[in-house]
Design a protein around this nucleic acid. Structure first.
Length: 276
DNA sequence: ATTGGTTCCTGCTGGC
DNA sequence: TGCCAGCAGGAACCAA
């Protein structure tokens, strides 16, 4: 599942493939993603040069000539493939929905089996007020994120802290995997109500969030070749999780068995001994 | 203002 | 071995 580190890694790959290049052709094979592609999608992109590829939360922002930004979200199963000129003959694959071809015969292919992903076109002037972006919480790797900021945002919430971390309005970009990992890193129990998290704990949690995300980006970055993919698992380089998907295995800190529970319909993994 | 429930979709898993 | 029901999961949306 692409969370912030995966989206960051993918963005870097797309930057290498696209920045400074002109989009020569756009193929839409399926327009009905999570929401329909905007009217005139292909025509509005074609011929424009790509100026930048950035990330906000789990969104990719591909800046185009003419003050236009292509907004993309990968949902659950979205991925991008980059095909070089030597792969010009490669046929489309199942679930390839949008293909951007640059003038130097590179193709960037958006593939999304479950179609929870989306794309939109936004005029740069309207970017900050875009409904999908306007209410997002702070970037966990940015300067505006800190223990006190997180503490403030958890204050008053009666929902479990794990569930709160998944709310993109609290902190942007943390998904199900790194929520569990960060709580483990901060030694905070996932069932604790958000409003009971004290300042010192929020400080630890904010640091743990940044730490796990940074580590995941660092390991994801090393696997990036011509394939831009979602989980960083090429060549056995998969990032090692401390607790996620490890129910029954020993806690790496105290060896107690990792437990799984379901919160808000999502799996949570934690060490019942270390995390309080 | 917050929160719980529902929905979208398809690949995978487990039971028979 | 094959079939199929059930489940996972990001996040918008709605109702309370």
């Amino acid at each position: 599942m692409p969370e912030l580190p995966e989206v960051e890694t993918i963005g870097r790959g797309l930057a290498r493939a696209l920045e400074g290049r002109r989009i020569a052709a756009v193929t839409v094979r399926r327009a009905d993603l999570r929401r329909p592609l905007p009217q005139g999608f292909a025509g509005r992109i074609k011929g424009r040069k790509v100026l930048s590829v950035r990330r906000r939360a789990k969104y990719l922002l591909i800046g185009l000539e003419g003050e236009l930004t292509l907004l993309a979200h990968l949902g659950m199963s979205g991925r991008f493939r980059v095909l070089g000129p030597d792969e010009a003959a490669a046929p489309p694959e199942r679930h390839d929905h949008v293909i951007l071809a640059t003038e130097d015969r590179t193709r960037v292919v958006f593939n999304d089996a479950r179609r929870f992903g989306l794309m939109d076109l936004v005029k740069n002037g309207a970017l900050e007020s875009h409904p999908l972006l306007a209410e997002l919480g702070p970037e966990p790797l940015g300067n505006e994120f800190s223990g006190p900021v997180l503490h403030e945002r958890l204050k008053g919430r009666r929902t479990p802290v794990k569930v709160a971390l998944l709310d993109q309005h609290v902190v942007a970009g943390v998904g199900n995997i790194y929520a569990s990992e960060a709580l483990f890193g901060a030694a905070i129990g996932p069932k604790r109500l958000a409003r009971t998290i004290r300042a010192a704990e929020a400080e630890r949690l904010a640091a743990a969030i940044a730490e796990v995300l940074r580590a995941a980006i660092a390991s994801g970055g090393s696997t990036l070749r011509q394939y831009v993919q979602t989980t960083g698992e090429i060549g056995g380089f998969q990032h090692k999780f401390a607790v996620y998907d490890r129910a029954g295995e020993p806690c790496p800190r105290c060896a107690a068995p990792i437990r799984r529970l379901v919160q808000g319909g999502r799996s949570t993994y934690f060490c019942p001994r270390c995390q309080r």
